[in-house]
Simulated assay, not measured.
Amino acid sequence: MTLNEVAKHTGISRANLSKIEQAESKTVPAPTLNKLLDLYKVDDPPVRAAMHELSKLAGLKGWWSLYKDLMPQTLVDFEAEACAIRTYEAQVIPGLLQTPAYADAIFRANRVRDDSEIAQRVTARMARQSILNRTNPPTYLVIIDEAAVRRMVGSASVMSEQLRHLRHMAARDNIDIYVLPFTAGAHTSTEGKYLIMDFPDPRDASVIYLESPTTTMFLEEDEQIRLYNDMFGSTQSCSMTPAQSLDFLNQRVQELEE
């Protein structure tokens, strides 16, 4: 049906229909939705109920809206949709695997944030980790440079707790942790950290996320994706296996707790 035909049958203005179809309307009022469902002969009660539930949820902001000034919202959106996440981290433990005490120490290293902002940032980071606890979590492949494992962040007790948390997370079926040892020498990821997100629909290209103290960047070109896929694969091949990495983490925890 054309917009004019739908408008004629439902009494909904053509302008409103256009906004709905172009996703320019944040919500669809229940009476409007019912008129459209009736016109399109959607008679199955569960389907109608589901459509109304979607209409309600469309007006709700995600949890990250509370922390929109503290993290890039687009990153959170992409992470929520991803079926697989791959990351290389050179300096610190990746944010999705940080403990509250470790995250607090990282944010305090800036030395310009007050306690209130630091607390907000830690809360936001912990909330972001919820994607790993959902019913169908993404596959998470993590390469952590040995420097990040050995670097004393906070205190020995903070580091010990953090590394024990890594061991716990590594036991999950969807998470593999690789430690890149100093003995690997120069490698393809020497220029810094990055995040690769893959999505369940094969028509959706992977997205590369880069971050610096002053800006963030998303890369989506085929050539860029191939480059970072090759970088990750090459760096992964230089790393300890997950089993070797777990042994290394155990050794490091023992050193910290002696």
Rank of each mutant, 00 (worst) to 15 (best):
F78H: 12
E79Y: 06
E79K: 04
E79S: 01
A80M: 10
A80D: 01
A82R: 04
A82S: 11
C83E: 08
A84E: 01
A84F: 04
R86S: 13
T87L: 15
T87D: 15
E89I: 14
A90P: 06
A90G: 10
Q91M: 06
V92C: 13
P94V: 01
G95K: 05
L96E: 11
L97C: 12
P100T: 00
D104P: 00
D104H: 12
A105Q: 11
F107S: 00
A109I: 01
R111L: 14
R113W: 10
S116R: 10
S116C: 12
E117L: 11
I118C: 14
A119H: 07
Q120K: 05
Q120C: 10
M126D: 01
Q129V: 05
S130N: 13
S130I: 08
I131D: 15
I131T: 08
I131E: 13
L132D: 06
R134Y: 05
T135Y: 04
N136V: 11
P137S: 11
P138C: 01
P138A: 11
P138L: 04
T139M: 07
T139K: 09
Y140I: 05
Y140C: 01
L141C: 10
I143D: 07
V149H: 10
S155E: 07
A156G: 08
A156F: 14
M159P: 14
E161C: 03
E161S: 09
L163P: 00
R164W: 12
H165P: 05
L166D: 10
R167F: 06
A170W: 13
A171D: 14
A171C: 09
A171M: 13
I175A: 11
I177Y: 03
V179S: 12
P181F: 15
A184H: 02
A184I: 10
T188E: 13
S189C: 06
S189W: 15
S189A: 15
T190A: 14
E191G: 04
